Amino acid sequence: MESPRIIEAEFIKSAQSIQDSLPEDMSEVVFLGRSNVGKSSTLNLLTNRKNLAKSSATPGKTQLINFFETTYKYGEERYPVRFVDLPGFGYAKVSKSLKQVWQKNLVEFIKERVSIRLFIHLRDARHPHAKIDDDVEAYITEFIRPDQRYLTVFTKIDKLNQKEKSKLKKDFPGAITISNLKKSGQDRVHKEILTTIFDIKEPGDES
């Protein structure tokens, strides 16, 4: 059977907080990561759209929660999933008051949003042990629900040599590596999304 793929993807709306977000009527995959980790490029890679998510030349500029509705095709079946792109963290070029509101809104969203089923944490393969990423993972792990899952995905893997790639796999055995440049790794991410949300496994895959 062919790999799962996204056949429809559409930007729906942006929100500032959980209060003006879309209704919780669809399972959601949340993408989080540092401002310069390549979230927009990753969303475009996964959805096979060039400009679905807009990249900004100024890291940290996207300060809204962005919602995208996607449809997966796997075999003869179709599966609706909502992608949620959260503002990047780690940049201080935001006024102090906005930053406090922004962080409060984000914390409220990730802790209280019932429809979130999967957190995909994008990390830069060149800086795998960045403290801010470790802190975010530790924080979310504290309140993650039994019906939710946390997945680490490393971007910019093509910028590593073979020795660095081997060390990364050893240090993060459960992580997935993707390359927006070589368009690789997205199939594994798709499978994790469908397995987590719909409990779909490939024929013969009992892992």
Score class of each variant (00 low, 15 high):
Thr42His: 03
Asn48Ala: 06
Gly33His: 01
Pro87Lys: 09
Gly90Val: 07
Lys111Thr: 05
Pro23Met: 09
Asn66Ala: 07
Arg49Met: 08
Thr42Asn: 07
Phe31Tyr: 09
Phe31Glu: 00
Ser97Thr: 15
Thr70Lys: 07
Asp124Trp: 03
Phe67Ile: 02
Asp124Ala: 06
Lys50Met: 08
Phe143Met: 13
Pro146Val: 11
Phe68Tyr: 15
Leu46Lys: 04
Pro87Cys: 10
His129Asn: 12
Asn51Tyr: 09
Arg78Tyr: 14
Glu24Val: 04
Leu122Val: 03
Leu64Asn: 14
Asp124Asn: 05
Ser56His: 09
Lys131Asp: 10
Lys104Thr: 13
Arg126Ser: 08
Leu86Asn: 05
Val29Trp: 06
Thr58Ser: 06
Ile144His: 05
Leu32Tyr: 04
Gly38Ser: 10
Phe143Gln: 12
Lys73Ser: 13
Arg145Gln: 13
Asp147Val: 09
Lys104Ser: 12
Arg117Lys: 15
Gln63Cys: 05
Met26Glu: 15
Ala92Asn: 12
Ala125Thr: 13
Asp133Met: 09
Thr42Trp: 04
Pro23Lys: 12
Lys93Phe: 09
Thr71Ser: 14
Val107Arg: 14
Val84Phe: 04
Val114Arg: 14
Leu122Ser: 02
Glu137His: 07
Lys93Ser: 08
Val37Met: 03
Val136Trp: 03
Ala92Arg: 08
Val29Glu: 01
Leu45Met: 15
Ile65Ala: 04
Arg78Ile: 10
Leu122Phe: 01
Pro23Gly: 04
Gly60Met: 10
Arg82Ser: 12
Lys61Pro: 03
His121Gly: 07
Thr71Pro: 01
Pro59Phe: 01
Val81Tyr: 02
Ser115Gly: 10
Tyr74Pro: 10
Ser40Arg: 04
Pro146Glu: 14
Glu112Thr: 13
Ile140Phe: 06
Ser21Gln: 08
Ala138Ser: 11
Gly33Cys: 08
Ala57Lys: 15
Asp20Phe: 00
Glu28Pro: 02
Gly88Asn: 05
Leu46Val: 13
Tyr72Ser: 01
Ile140Met: 07
Asn36Thr: 02
Glu142Ser: 15
Lys111Trp: 07
Glu24Gln: 15
Pro80Glu: 07
Ser115Cys: 04
Tyr139Asp: 10
Asp135Lys: 12
Ser21Met: 10
Arg145His: 11
Ile140Asn: 03
Gly33Gln: 05
Phe109Arg: 03
Gly88Lys: 04
Gln103Ala: 13
Thr47Phe: 12
Leu118Ser: 05
Arg126Lys: 14
Thr42Ile: 13
Thr70Pro: 14
Asn44Val: 02
Asn36Lys: 03
Leu22Pro: 04
His121Met: 02
Tyr139Cys: 09
Thr62Asp: 00
Asp135Glu: 15
Pro87Asp: 01
Leu86Trp: 02
Ser41Leu: 05
Pro128Cys: 12
Gly33Asp: 06
Lys99Met: 11
Val94Ala: 09
Tyr79Thr: 12
Phe119Asp: 10
Ser97Cys: 01
Asn51Ser: 13
Thr62Leu: 01
Lys131Ser: 11
Pro80Leu: 13
Leu98Ile: 15
Asn66Tyr: 00
Lys93Ile: 05
Val29Asn: 00
Gly88Thr: 02
Asn44His: 12
Phe68Met: 11
Asn44Tyr: 11
Lys73Glu: 15
Ser40Tyr: 06
Leu22Asp: 02
Arg145Asp: 09
Lys96Cys: 02
Glu108Pro: 00
Ser55Trp: 03
Arg113Pro: 00
